[in-house]
Design a binder for these strands. Structure first.
Lengths: 199, 199
DNA sequence: TGCAGCATTGTGGTTAACCACAGGCGGACA
DNA sequence: TGTCCGCCTGTGGTTAACCACAATGCTGCA
């Protein structure tokens, strides 16, 4: 069973409680909120998991909350629940990256299936983001000069070309080049390019 | 004005004619079909452009036609028109890659805007596919042995390692390596990796 | 003031890639 | 049978990458 949380946001307490109990009984980690405002105040920018969002809520609507999440590049996977939605709204939400858009009332099994699917996607994203994060951390250790040399190495230039361009000795290029490779944990320009392409 | 065709598929002649005239009057290249069957029989697997698809048609429905297009990896951009669609249908179509899902009747201006947007997407895809196609063509010129060597070059192995693995002389690895670079139009393993990553 | 980090440079030696020139064999096809 | 293509190999030479060992200078900070 996946340990990533499912955030449930619905102003209707009866619905919220029923869905929360359903999810809890299926082993999910659940956090419930009565409004978009309280939900947004509680999460971090780097929170991961699935958000089940009611569209129609006083104050911030589900779509407003979704906009906020997109603004902060949130990694949360969003499933909309709507009792009064229409096709244009649903199509737009999905085109903007929502994972799904379900009509209320929907079958419990269908919702649970969607949540399972969404949690799998969240897991896949975590793995890919781990690689990205590591590469970024290593890149941050490079000095300005090392970065200049790295760009030219990745452009396929010879050390002597780089030396000409930067007005330094070939030996200095070699030193920077070796430093870049060491800090990035690679052994060749090819290795480095592939590391950076994979993020 | 974009020269890529807009394919209009609707069994209702009145609607089809009205929309066709609208599009023609805005300078689009239009081809109209009364059924999914006639449309599918008329296009090629590599046809490009925008398909405006009515959902509800006798014989093959718009969704059936969309399935066929996806099966043949068609490059056509699909906009659905639906008089009786619902949210789950719309959400599924968009999640499966349809460009949009509009309800009939829809404003002429909205439809024209969507078609413009879709044609832009089609253009962007053509450029990116041109690169991809060229790389694939070059890849197809490689002999089996050259391909074996290329994989190991891209894995960052030394020529002498490759020679050991394939039980051949280092000089032979060099020959294959040179042949691969020449056929692929690159000058280094880095160049090659970047060419293949860009497709 | 001393130390760390960054940038720089030289010398000499090794390894690897690259290739011109040369050659051979086997299979497929006209 | 002759030609083409793919696969293979050796020799000798050049260029480029890599680095151990050694050294200098500048800046920022405790």
């Amino acid at each position: 069973m996946n340990t990533k949380p499912v955030y449930l946001i619905d102003d209707d307490a009866a619905v919220r409680d029923a869905l929360a109990l359903l999810m809890l009984s299926h082993g999910y980690t659940v956090r419930a909120f009565e409004s978009g405002e309280t939900f947004l105040a509680a999460i971090q920018a780097d929170s991961e998991g699935v958000a089940v969002l009611d569209v129609r809520m006083p104050g911030l609507s589900g779509l407003d909350v979704f906009d906020r999440l997109r603004e902060q590049d949130s990694e949360l996977i969003v499933i909309f629940l709507s009792g009064h939605g229409d096709i244009p709204m649903a199509v737009q939400a999905v085109k903007q990256g929502a994972f799904d858009f379900l009509e209320k009332p929907c079958s419990e099994q269908a919702l649970l299936n969607k949540i399972d699917d969404a949690l799998e996607v969240a897991l896949g994203r975590q793995a890919s983001r781990g690689n990205q994060h590591e590469a970024e951390k290593r890149l941050a250790t490079l000095s300005p000069r090392e970065r200049e040399v790295m760009e030219r190495v990745l452009a396929g230039k010879l050390n002597k070309q780089i030396a000409d361009e930067l007005n330094i000795a070939i030996r200095t290029v070699e030193v920077h080049r070796a430093n870049v490779f060491a800090k990035m944990g690679v052994r060749s320009a090819l290795d480095l390019a592939q590391l950076l392409a994979a993020r």
